[in-house]
Design a protein around this nucleic acid. Structure first.
Lengths: 235, 235
DNA sequence: AAATTATTGTATCATTGCGGTACAATGATA
DNA sequence: TATCATTGTACCGCAATGATACAATAATTT
């Protein structure tokens, strides 16, 4: 009857939570789950099997929520404060989903969560709710409601890390389709960094990196010069 | 009889390991423990009490090994590979110390370790072995032998992170005494980054940060101009 | 006490990177 | 053919950094 997870299958006291970024309509978005029959929103998470490495567990969790494999991801922080989870909230959330949890249950223990952020091509993802949630939907990063537990903190820390490594690791390209215009790329950067960039200088900088292959022009049908398409060539 | 830790006191399956950096004689050093009656070297580590936040646990572990409180530290990575620890090695290490461990013991389970790096004033630390080790000593970062488990990986990852944030977070100053010369500071930077820097430009850059207070000169007795002493004033 | 020596503090010049502006090129429409 | 919006690139100027030059100074040597 109950589909609740048990401690038999997973490492106790450790979870993984994933801040999954996507980009669409010039908006940076993340995937959030809605606990069944509640208003509570949470970042997708899961647990680690005895047979899995950490990154494998994260990849599995991400695949379950997005349908994608081989996702770009990085661990960015461990959240382990003594009181980071309110167990009453957990209990209520589970109860609303039809699962009654006793005080000695696996999930009532203290949990330490490893935060991963993931970058995916929005156009390829198929958001899928998990067993405890009604919905799995994209939320504009500028309009994130208050989240459960310390998940709001997770999101801001993930975003901070994403911004910090955007240039350093050239990770932004994971958020775009294979082929894109310089304008697409600039919009992505401006959205992530939340500031305007000068078109000419941005173009100069990106081209100087030597990581872009210039393809055919993109004939938009608009009454102006057609932009080139580019492909990211990690080198 | 046995002073071995038990799972009653600590969170199961999670450990903390600390790469503790110090600076002396123009050498960057880390503290390593030597398992009793073996050649095995390891980074100091410990476990997390139910009552502790992660950073509190790390501070406790660091105080036990160095005698210092209020240490600068940061978590830098989680090490959780399925086979990161060889339990036979763990068993032997414990046996050499007089502790016999059964196959179902707390320590025989899979462990996930949170890596912290710490920066301390070498002149103030009192390295102290733990219950399982004979010695707790400084090792020049350039001459680190092979370490137990994945501890070699931990050290290189910690060093990489230290280098990356050296300017960003101005963390180098935690490795020096309160008062130092510009030459001391430059030697520290050159050692951490493992490359020579131009004296004049280094001085210009450090002074332009506006984080140094110039004190009296340091009369060394040498036949040359006496350098100023500086104090770090975080702002 | 004047010359010497090693080191330190600072000024100066050259190069690079980046913010900002100007302008030519272009694909469609009027 | 003229117009328009957008794109690609060249150019100017400033700030940061690399590199060199030189004056200042604490002791020693003459």
């Amino acid at each position: 009857m109950s589909t609740l997870i048990s401690s038999v299958d997973y490492l106790p006291g450790i979870s993984i939570d994933c801040v999954i970024f996507g980009f669409h309509d010039n908006q940076l978005k993340i995937l959030l789950l809605n606990f069944k029959s509640t208003d509570w929103l949470a970042v997708p998470g899961g647990f680690i099997k005895e047979s899995e490495n950490l990154e494998e567990a994260a990849q599995r969790i991400l695949e379950e929520r997005t349908g994608l494999t081989n996702i770009y991801l990085e661990q960015f922080h461990v959240f382990g404060d003594r009181n980071r989870r309110d167990n009453e909230v957990m209990k209520s959330a589970m109860a609303a989903g039809g699962n009654i949890i006793g005080p000695d249950h696996f999930l009532m223990r203290r949990f330490i969560s490893i935060g991963f952020y993931a970058l995916i091509d929005f156009t390829k993802a198929t958001p899928t709710p998990d067993i405890h949630s009604d919905t799995c939907e994209w939320y504009d990063i500028k309009e994130i409601p208050t989240l459960i537990y310390d998940h709001s903190l997770m999101v801001s820390k993930a975003l901070e890390t994403l911004r910090f490594f955007l240039d350093e690791k050239l990770i932004g390209f994971n958020l775009l389709p294979e082929v894109f215009t310089m304008n697409d790329l600039q919009n992505l950067y401006e959205t992530i960094l939340d500031k305007k960039l000068l078109r000419t200088n941005f173009q100069r900088k990106m081209l100087s990196l030597g990581i872009l292959e210039r393809l055919d022009k993109k004939m938009t049908g608009a009454a102006n010069k057609a932009p080139y398409l580019y492909r990211f060539t990690g080198k």
